[in-house]
Design a protein around this nucleic acid. Structure first.
Length: 577
RNA sequence: CGGGACGUGGCGCAGCUCGGUAGCGCACUUGCUUCGGGAGCAAGGGGUCGCUGGUUCAAAUCCAGUCGUCCCGACCA
């Protein structure tokens, strides 16, 4: 493809609306453009990369025995009434009417459509198991779309659905899909883990999320580098380690300490020269069950997700400053667990009851209290794990140190069981002629999000760096001086030779200065470039630059150059498989 | 939905506090010179200042409303 005849509107400056690297690069490199909040157009480069990614996924789905179909993006709302999700899905489901005043919606997912399709067309156990998939649009009217393709309202997803005669069959299908996912994400070069997850809106009995490690990920995962244990930030387990409280602090009653203006644990710890782990902090929350107090060790943080679970509370927010002042009788920053007014519940982290003496706030301005003893000076109503896990906590399995990593969720696989086949009355006849519900699974990959994750993880600020198997072009021929006959005809020839050899090649024949062209190739992320300029003619050597390594190689004749390109492409592909 | 910020040629921004001629860089067009990492000179084109209403002799600027975009929270691939 000649650059001059193609459409790559690259941007020199960072667009102001993009907050993260991958979003900036996709816009700057002319891969995508926003049409409306959370709604994007794929430009030629983005579209080519997207198609390559989709096809890689197709290869693995097909080889796993899944069969590709395509279901309607616009669906009758009636389908959603059948499953009951018309109400469950809420405002994320975009609804509208056609000219006959019938209700429709844009598909946020396809369980209803596929269940309906299979229900009407599969009669017998002999036709099972069946795994169908599609690569298709979805629309969710997100509350807050952001970060480009990472969280768009309209997005492309690969979704597969398995139909089995029983749970064992489902387990098998699930495993087949999980293996396919492992192959896909290995080929893409990602570092990833499957993490057990809440099944959320889609429902079902069991699900795992495919999480890819990335500094800018929105989710947190806890991993042990030694034994490979991994779990979501909210569910991860760790080994208890008890901190020795200060011996000199053990007293038969509480002792008041003067701590002028020292409000945070940090400040007090520094002021008193006592380890933060010897403190217990008391946090006041407001909830539908009234005000509650939660306690964790001074060097830990309350995990609101765990707090909600342990208390059965749904709406939880930090209490307002004036409420804290009323409840504790002191300014914010000096709260302790005793003599609280209007607290309905005291919940403490299990580490609080495991240690005898604590330093807490004194519920008095400029004062903290030492020798605070659980069950003597205050009485917890609930003892539970309510603190965040942190870097350095001990692994429950192997006693190594755990670390918390940011991740991006790129896939989610579910064992649905009979959830949809029951509500939608989808049945087949088994061996004995009895009518049975399909046992289902569903398996998603956010394709657009995966493309952006590749950009996020493998690129630098100079440009995109997609894996060779996804990159829109493999090699770019850059002709530096378009006014020079010799250079132009040499560049033309190399371009045509590479094209004939079956390479995906871009030819930058634009009449622009060298700097602009070289910057553009780096930005749009073509893995190999062949640079042809005066130097080429003068030295009689052909230059190949490899983006990934930054290396430049020189060849005496064209055949050597072509051979190198071919081997590089082949080995790069091999490395990815 | 709650909290915050921003809307001025294609892109990035200044001007707004203190009302009075709409400006800068890049991009674009033409010509000449350049040609190995975002070239130089010269000449040009392009904006009802998001929209609506109000205040005023006069509004990009002040006021109200509205729409859009982005960021922070609860949801998700």
């Amino acid at each position: 493809m000649r650059y001059s005849k193609f459409f790559i509107p690259s941007l020199k400056e960072d667009p102001k609306e993009a907050a993260i690297k991958s979003h900036r690069l996709l816009l700057r490199a002319g891969y995508i453009r926003q049409i409306s909040g959370g709604i994007y157009a794929y430009l030629p480069l983005g579209f080519k990369a997207l198609k390559k990614l989709e096809n890689l996924i197709r290869e693995e789905m097909n080889s796993a025995g899944a069969i590709e179909i395509s279901m309607p993006f616009v669906q009758p709302l009636e389908l959603w009434r059948q499953s009951g999700r018309d109400e469950d899905y809420g405002r994320e489901l975009l609804r509208f009417k056609d000219r006959q005043d019938r209700d429709f919606c844009l598909a946020p997912t396809y369980e209803e459509a596929i269940t309906d399709l299979v229900k009407k067309n599969i009669r017998s156990y002999k036709e099972l198991p069946l795994i169908l998939y599609q690569v298709h649009l979805k629309f969710r009217d997100e509350i807050r779309p952001r970060y480009g393709l990472m969280r768009a309202k309209e997005f492309i997803m690969k979704d597969a659905y398995s139909f089995d005669i029983n749970e064992e069959g489902l387990d098998k299908s699930y495993k087949i899909m999980k293996n396919a996912y492992e192959r896909i994400f290995k080929r893409l070069g990602f570092e990833f883990r499957f993490i057990k997850a809440d099944s959320g809106e889609i429902g079902g009995s069991f699900s795992e999320e495919l999480m890819v490690f990335s500094e800018y990920g929105e989710d947190k995962v806890v991993v042990c580098s030694n034994c490979g244990y991994s779990a979501s930030f909210d569910d991860a387990e760790w080994a208890k380690e008890y901190h020795e409280s200060l011996g000199s602090c053990r007293q038969p009653r509480m002792t008041k300490l003067f701590t002028p203006d020292k409000k945070s644990v940090e400040d007090v710890s520094e002021y008193l020269k006592i380890d933060k782990a010897c403190f217990a902090k008391t946090i006041i929350y407001e909830s539908e069950k009234g005000f509650i107090a939660a306690m964790v060790r001074g060097d830990h943080e309350v995990n609101e997700h765990k707090l909600k679970k342990a208390t059965g509370i749904k709406d939880l927010t930090l209490a307002k400053e004036e409420d804290v002042e009323r409840i504790t009788g002191s300014p914010c920053g000096f709260a302790g667990p005793f003599r609280l007014h209007g607290i309905n519940l005291i919940i403490v982290d299990e580490e609080i009851t495991a240690q005898e003496y604590w330093i807490t706030g004194a519920n008095e301005k400029d004062a903290h209290m030492a020798n605070v003893k659980p069950d003597r000076d205050f009485t917890p109503d609930i003892v539970a794990k309510i603190r965040n896990i942190g870097d350095g906590d001990m692994c429950l399995r192997c006693a190594s140190r755990l670390s918390v990593k940011n991740t991006i969720e790129l896939g989610h696989i579910f064992k649905l069981g009979e959830k949809y086949s029951l509500t939608m009355d989808a049945k087949f006849l088994d061996e004995s002629g009895a009518s049975k519900n399909f046992v289902m699974g569903c398996y998603g990959i956010g394709v657009g999000r995966t493309l952006q994750a590749l950009v996020e993880i493998f690129s630098d600020e100079n440009g995109i760096n997609l894996p060779v198997c996804i990159s829109p072009f493999i090699v770019c021929v850059v002709s530096l001086n378009t006014g020079d006959e010799k250079i132009v005809s040499l560049a033309d020839r190399i371009y045509n030779d590479l094209l004939k050899a079956g390479n995906d090649v871009l030819y930058d024949d634009r009449k622009l200065s060298a700097g602009v062209k070289l910057k553009d190739v780096d930005l749009i992320g073509i893995p190999l470039k062949i640079i042809i300029g005066n130097k080429t003619i003068k030295d009689g050597k052909y230059e190949l630059a490899i983006k990934k390594t930054g290396k430049r190689e020189f060849y005496d004749n064209l055949d050597d150059l072509y051979n190198k390109v071919t081997t590089l492409v082949k080995t790069e592909f091999l490395n990815m498989i």
